[in-house]
Design a protein around this nucleic acid. Structure first.
Lengths: 198, 198
DNA sequence: GGGTGCATGTAATGGGTTACATGATTCT
DNA sequence: AGAATCATGTAACCCATTACATGCACCC
């Protein structure tokens, strides 16, 4: 048990409190449930399940199937649940994620405004579609009263929605500004072309 | 020149278009200019400057100073500017950053609501302070007409501001919901305590 | 016949942070 | 006296993605 900062093992523990699952199931579920703020690759999931088992936080049993490969079904142990509780009590440290879009925009004066306009337009497209299915999903979860996890799941979904809305708002505002910038460049082409081609 | 996905070298190139600088200067500038969406450690900056010089994208000269250590001052070359232009033209791929706060919230039904309440409260505090200095900074940049980079820098700052506002809004909304959840738990303490202690 | 889904795993590779080493000066 | 700033660099480590390997069943 060395010092580990990341939470790759804890997602697995957390999802195993819902029901026993295989590594493959966990991969699927991660994509569909927490996928908009947390990803794991199988190259991470399988080895982590092994170390979790070695530490006694989960147990595994193999189920044979005909026609399909064997399943290694993992269950969380009491020790695992305890560990999860401890992890939950530790205040999450806010980190600043890298944003390549903003980085390119920051240096965009070196190229034609058409370039950032291009990728903002495509971004708006994608985000609009995403927002639609987000709102759809929210309506579906909204029905789930009774289940004790439901309110928390709704909160995380709501976060995604609000953030998306903010991004969209910004993108549209920014597009308008970029277009007027492009306009000015075309009309006032007298001197100061500061950016190099290509 | 192998396939590299990250943009750690390009930040350096980009900032060197402003003026020649040392690795140390670059570190400082990264923190103060793009720090709210991009970070670099010196363990990354110094080796990258070396490879950039080896590839002919920057040149270096050493300046001696008395009392202080020598400075290695890097300047971008034409080849470097060209490279930067190429990189800027490539559409940035949106990635989903991991969010540990949301992950813990997703599993928060396993602990007392007091726990997420605690860290959301502290988050609101911090973000309020951040927002104040963000708005401050924006007013200062707003004066900078004439400089060709200024509009782009404002756009990235604006992004940070809008996103922060969205986070704050969400945090307050969520706090209210968590508090009513905690209320319900205290009054209706009949059976179903589903979460384990500590 | 070929793609997709189920299912588990390992190895190579790459990207990045942290800690360490060094050392004079200036501020508190 | 001690901390912070300027300044450069390396080594250890860790986390994570991607590619590869395997193989049956089902659908088009």
């Amino acid at each position: 048990m060395s010092r580990r900062s990341s939470s790759s093992r804890e997602v697995l523990l957390g999802l195993l409190t819902i029901e026993p699952m295989t590594g493959y199931d966990l991969g699927q579920l991660i994509r569909t449930s927490v996928g908009h703020f947390w990803r794991e690759s199988y190259g991470q999931i399988y080895p982590n399940l092994k170390t979790l088992a070695a530490d006694g936080l989960v147990t595994a049993k193999t189920e044979h199937q005909k026609g399909k490969p064997d399943r290694r079904v993992y269950s969380i142990t009491d020790k695992g649940r305890e560990q999860l509780g401890k992890w939950l009590a530790v205040e999450p440290q806010p980190e600043i994620p890298r944003n390549e879009l903003l980085l390119k925009l920051f240096f965009a004066a070196r190229v034609s405004p058409e370039i950032p306009i291009g990728y903002l337009e495509r971004m708006v497209e994608k985000e609009r579609a995403l927002l639609r299915q987000f709102r759809q999903a929210e309506r579906e979860i909204a029905g789930n009263r009774q289940y004790p996890d439901a309110p928390y799941w709704r909160m995380t979904a709501r976060f995604g929605q609000l953030e998306l809305e903010a991004h969209l708002h910004w993108a549209q505002e920014t597009l308008a500004e970029l277009r007027s910038l492009a306009e000015k460049e075309k009309t006032g082409e007298r001197k100061g072309k500061h950016h190099a081609g290509k």
